[in-house]
Simulated scan of single mutants.
Amino acid sequence: MNAQLLVEFVRDQYKTQDFIPLHAPTFAGNEKPYVIETIESTFVSSVGKFVNEFELKMEAFTGTPKAVATVNGTAALHTALYMAGVERGDLVITQALTFVATCNALYHMGAEPIFVDVSLKSLGLCPKALESYLDENATLTENECYHKHTGQRIKAVIPMHTFGHPVELDELVSICSKWNLALIEDAAESLGSFYKGRHTGTLGDYGAVSFNGNKIITTGGGGMVLCGSEESGNHTKHVTTTAKVPHKYEFFHDEPGFNYRMPNINAALGCAQMEVLEQYLKSKRALAEQYASFFDNSEVKFVLEPDYARSNYWLNSIICVDEQQRNEFLETTNSLGVMTRPVWQLMDRLPMFEKALKGSLSNSEFISSRLINLPSSYIAD
């Protein structure tokens, strides 16, 4: 496979000789009138109709009992960890093949990560690797899970639906139930992805979604906590709005809280984006099919959705033959104005997490040295 051929193919899809970004936001609907409405109303911050509307639209689309809008995806994940009872000194199992925000949220909780390998099928946390790690290193004491060697409590598991491809959730739910661990889905990249007909982020205790500028829909900056019950959702909303008790004029806060509420002006963007989400998903699936066809019968492997899932194909990805080929592809495509990117550095290779506990990461290392993300922006009909 020649990188020059890939550049020509991508340019043919986007029908341009200009620079092609990895994933650009698209504003093709009611974004402008909705944002102007918030400005004219003066309710641009945490009070305004669009925040509640955005949450309701998300509940309807994902099927979650309660959605709570936040200022960004990291805040959503931080909130989910807090609501799940993660405390300072706890251990939380996650994948090394993830964006740093997953681990940053743990750091700000005072918790520490344990890195477990990913599945080559989903690119996300591998149930077999998780079960093996727990069998070897964990014990249940009075219905709490503890690490045999450090004595620390293991409180939760955070799988990430990498590039929008759902992990094997039934297996992960079962393992977490057996070991009394909270399951928090990092669904930052998987809005519009479904696991056996259920939306990602809704099978665990909590899910966290991101609406950063490069996501499938954007609010500029923003996130959402998907809550497993209406009761937990109401509490989550209370906590993210400084735990202020409603009153005509008094300021009374009944527990520690976060100032994480999404501003109304951002939610206005989100409401408009939700109106065209299905259109975006259709376009991205069509693009993925074109990529899959292009790489068919090639030594380069296009990453397809798992057979149990329907992915949003947020970012289209390929697995190169080796690291040398990956580097050649990255150098050629980027020098010719077609943005491609490698996967993130594995978390255990970053200075702040290099001493973290971990299992074997052979699959993570394999993917890290070979994966490339391709341009995946929305293409209008």
Rank of each mutant, 00 (worst) to 15 (best):
W314K: 08
H253Q: 13
F19Y: 15
A188D: 10
E53I: 01
E112L: 14
E142N: 13
V303S: 01
E255F: 04
L361Y: 02
P375V: 01
P159A: 01
K248P: 00
H235P: 04
N327K: 14
Y82F: 15
S177K: 12
I158S: 05
T26S: 13
G85S: 13
S360F: 02
E37T: 03
G192S: 12
S360I: 09
A80H: 01
S232L: 13
L361W: 03
H247R: 11
Y260D: 05
A188Y: 00
T236I: 09
K178D: 09
A3D: 09
K66C: 14
P21G: 08
S368G: 03
Y82W: 13
M352Y: 02
M83C: 11
A288H: 15
N212Q: 04
L304V: 05
T16H: 15
I154W: 06
F295R: 12
C227F: 00
I114S: 06
F194Y: 15
A138L: 07
N137A: 04
L191W: 03
D254E: 14
M109E: 09
G48P: 10
S335T: 11
F329K: 03
P21Q: 06
N327I: 00
K301C: 14
S177C: 11
S293V: 10
S335E: 08
N72E: 12
E37D: 12
E53K: 07
F61K: 11
K178T: 10
T200Y: 04
G359R: 05
N212F: 01
